[in-house]
Simulated scan of single mutants.
Amino acid sequence: MFKNINLGIKLNLLLGIIFLVLTLTISLILSRILQNYAEQIVADRASLLIETMNSVRQYTSTQVNPELASSLETEKFFIPQTVPAYSAREVFENLRSNEKYSQFFYKEATLNPTNLRDKADKFETEIIKSFRDNPNSADLKMVDLQQHGFHTIPGGELFYIARPLAIKQESCLRCHSIPKNAPASQIATYGKDNGFGWKMNEIVGAQIISVPASQVVKQAQNLRWQVLGRVSIFLMLGIVLLNIFLKFTITDPINKMSSLSKKLSTGDFSVEFKHKNNDEIGILARSLNRLKVSLKMAMEMIENQSPK
């Protein structure tokens, strides 16, 4: 059956197979590349959020806390607005009202927090310990120790980015060194058992921003389909242009020569095989013209030798 199919259809079948193979190959390659790219996009956005939270923390530590420090001794209850972690969390929750960031979650996970709400779970504890165990943690900036990846929870899978939290200001030790140095309102609110024993330059926790992994996968898929769509358009355009090229340079000249050859086989020596280009089709046309001349001469010789 395949032998009876004309050359144009065969070429299109071949091009179709090449198109499918290229599409599948590109899809497989893009899946991994765009997955990494999507992860990087989310990681970059999360890094920007962490930098923003650090700015909030810095502002609270240098501007808000000094103004309210004296009130911590006289107020009956602790003023959480003086704590950088509290300010960062509140600002982030307001940020989540923006649909663009509604799927992001922020936590300052701590091994020994004052507020047990910030207590690190098993996974977060492992992250913090990995920061502490890094031999270069004392020499590198916090951003250089940053890590990201996927974490499975009962509700699904999360993509996270984590950065260590270290004590870099002496003012932090007022509330976290020993209970007797802590403000009275802090002791009254949180007690003497949690959040103490911190030391200067010690990594005590981690800033962790997480987002459902489906968001990363969805972004990667959107990018993949966009790229595949554009690649498919260019491939289809290439196939169309190649078909047009083959039609005018190969199939049409061959069909014309085939038709003229049939006339020649019936004894019509008036046919002329013409092809302007000096390519393989042109060589074939000249060969057929020589064949026609030779055949005509042979027929004339036969006629002259036949008895009258």
Rank of each mutant, 00 (worst) to 15 (best):
D193P: 01
N54H: 10
F131Q: 00
I233G: 04
K168N: 14
A213L: 07
L246C: 12
V143D: 13
L24V: 12
N98S: 10
D139I: 03
Q215I: 15
A46H: 00
N243T: 04
S70M: 11
I5K: 07
R117E: 09
R224G: 02
K119W: 01
E124G: 02
F269T: 09
N194R: 08
H151D: 13
S87A: 11
I26F: 10
K168P: 04
L228V: 10
V293Q: 04
S210M: 12
R230V: 05
L34F: 08
E93L: 04
T74L: 10
A85H: 01
E303M: 11
N222G: 10
V64I: 14
S55I: 03
L34N: 07
V271F: 03
P80I: 08
E170G: 15
R96F: 04
T251F: 01
P113M: 04
L237D: 00
Q221T: 14
F269M: 09
N12T: 07
P84Y: 02
I187R: 05
N6R: 10
N36K: 15
I127K: 00
P183I: 02
L13H: 09
L111K: 00
S232A: 13
L173Y: 02
W198K: 01
M53L: 11
Y190W: 13
E170Y: 13
P84K: 01
V21Q: 02
K296G: 11
I254K: 03
F78P: 01
E39C: 02
N289D: 09
C172S: 06
K3D: 14
I208K: 00
E280L: 10
K296W: 12
D193H: 11
E202D: 13
A184D: 11
K122E: 15
P179F: 03
T152V: 13
F92L: 06
I18V: 12
F245R: 01
L24H: 01
P212S: 09
Q219C: 02
E202M: 00
P84M: 06
S171H: 07
I79V: 11
I9S: 12
L288R: 12
A88L: 04
K199P: 03
Q221L: 11
F273A: 09
S177Q: 12
I178G: 07
A46E: 08
N65R: 14
L241G: 09
